[in-house]
Amino acid sequence: MEYVLETMSLCKSYRHFKALNGLDMHIPKGAIYGFVGKNGAGKTTLIRLICGLQPPTSGEFTLYGAKNTCGDIYKARRRVGAVIETPSVYLSMTARENLKQQYRVLGLPDFNGIDELLTLVGLSDTGRKKVKNFSLGMRQRLGIAIALCGDPDMLILDEPTNGLDPQGIIEIRELILDLNQKRGITVLISSHILDELSRLATHYGFIDNGRLVKEISAQELETLCRKCARVTVSDISALALILDKTGLEYKILDNKTADIYAHPNITKLTLALADVGCELLGFEERNESLESFFISLVGGERQ
């Protein structure tokens, strides 16, 4: 698999506090990588390191094949657009002036494409309105537009839906999906709104205390979080025999418990089990969400 970003034992310390503690991460090309973690887990720190705002204390990372210690990293960063925490926009300028400014920073030869960007983020009708008079959602969208200047191959979004109203959240989500699907932009998106992330991400990285505790694709996660009925019986082989006959998909967990990936008729199942002398000791419907998966990974402390 081709990775856009790989980190190897990346560490970042602030005095005695380790914000990143040997983080290993792999972002495949074309993915929407959901970066999940509690507040203070190290999500923003990692993003700052990748974007060159701060140097790592130890470890290294490669961005588009360029090591962070090599001069090529500056070239690689030109392929990245980012919105880190708050949108980086000049408040005394209009949306168009902000985009022009970013075009100059990038050294783009002309201002073609600004109208398209403004339309893409829904800010084409802001005219001479200064950014200081924009709503938070508008600023967030302008931040994304600035990150998109120069057609980056990768977009890094740090908590992009923070402070947005439901409509704003939907707009940002649709924009990200659109950019990923139509333009093939790889997206790293950090968030602790897991429900929102679950609608977007193709891959997940779960961070806790500066370490990546799990990296998983959305497909794998779906399999892990599939709806199932967990049954506990006195004779697991009897249960397996019955389930094989009915053609239901199942997974045996131990000599008394199994997960059935369907919604079985409990009466029929109980009667069938009774016929072969097996007792049904327990029945529990399970529907593990991204949230519960995350909690099971990092422990039950509140965020």
Partner: peptide, 18 residues
Amino acid sequence: GTDYSCGTIRNKLTSGHR
């Protein structure tokens, strides 16, 4: 100070400027 208060210095660094 504006580059810091508006956060736009981040845009310069992220754009690959030394």
